[in-house]
Amino acid sequence: MTVAVFIEHRGDKLLPIALEGLGAGRKLADALGQPLSAVLVGSDIGGLALSAIASGSDKVYVLDDPLLKDYQPDAYVAVLEKVARQINPQIFIIGQTDAGRDLAPRLAFRLGTAVTTDCVDLAIDPASKRLLATRPVYGGNALAVFSSDTDPQMVTIRTKTMTPLAPDTARKGEVINIAAGLDAAAIRAKVINRVVEEVAGINIEDAERVVAGGRGIGSAEGFKQLEELARLLKGAVGASRPPCDSNWVPDTVQVGLTGKIIAPELYIAVAISGSSQHMSGCSGARTIVAINKDKEANIFRHARYGAVGDWKKILPAFTAKVRELISY
């Protein structure tokens, strides 16, 4: 019996969500008195096993194969099924990432179990020793706690909701290689190209400060003012869904349940009403500041500081004052 975490990586580093998964998995494994296993899939990735151990794993299962270099849905589901059948995890944690949200439901069906996606909290029920998985439902308006009777109890976790351990290189662990043994015929859907749509400036998911606009910004032209402020703050521009749907900004900067889920230090929401779908994407921000003409707008229920009025008048003055203040 073990708690397993599928750990994703990019380049020569584990992704933050992989470390968050290991942090969450470590707590659950300790509560159950089980070892924590990391599952590492890719090509030429052996070197990452040590960081997985430093971040909490007792065992690292490595599936290293040129066919697994990048995420390919059928290949990844096949090898994860193989690992799951071999190590029999009682709990299997996967990140709610581009790959994770795609593969977790398939893997669950293939293993004859269930997955609770996009969890924001995981705990062990003291009486039943089963996993209690908390996730937002109804577009972020409510939270639901789920459990299941089938193993592995699979979950995907939302980014930045779990705490990683401080890496400790003195930690000991075991690395186990498993042959991928892929059957080429089982790979049907193929990713033939990956296109990165460049967004100028800082990536919104990495930005400490985000200036986001809503429907009320009114045009692509209007977003230029938000960009100016974002540049000044060394941050990124975000948006709620309407500006993306209207092509004022690229879809990749959409913040919300069906866009990016971010947790910057500062989130400045300009002309955003604050629907629960949108707030699901930014409620992890440390400080939310809102500018909106409607005092009753939902955004003010989440904001720490608010200004009620026409953003076209407030924002230029705000930006000018910020420029003055930070130049000292």
Partner: peptide, 25 residues
């Protein structure tokens, strides 16, 4: 296969401080 144990609405504790001013600027 999946059981719902609890469904609830999270409470928002944040209290917004509204910024005063004679005019928007």
């Amino acid at each position: 296969r999946v059981k719902l144990n609890r469904l609830y609405q999270p409470v928002h504790e944040e209290k917004c401080e509204f910024i005063a001013g004679e005019n928007p600027e």
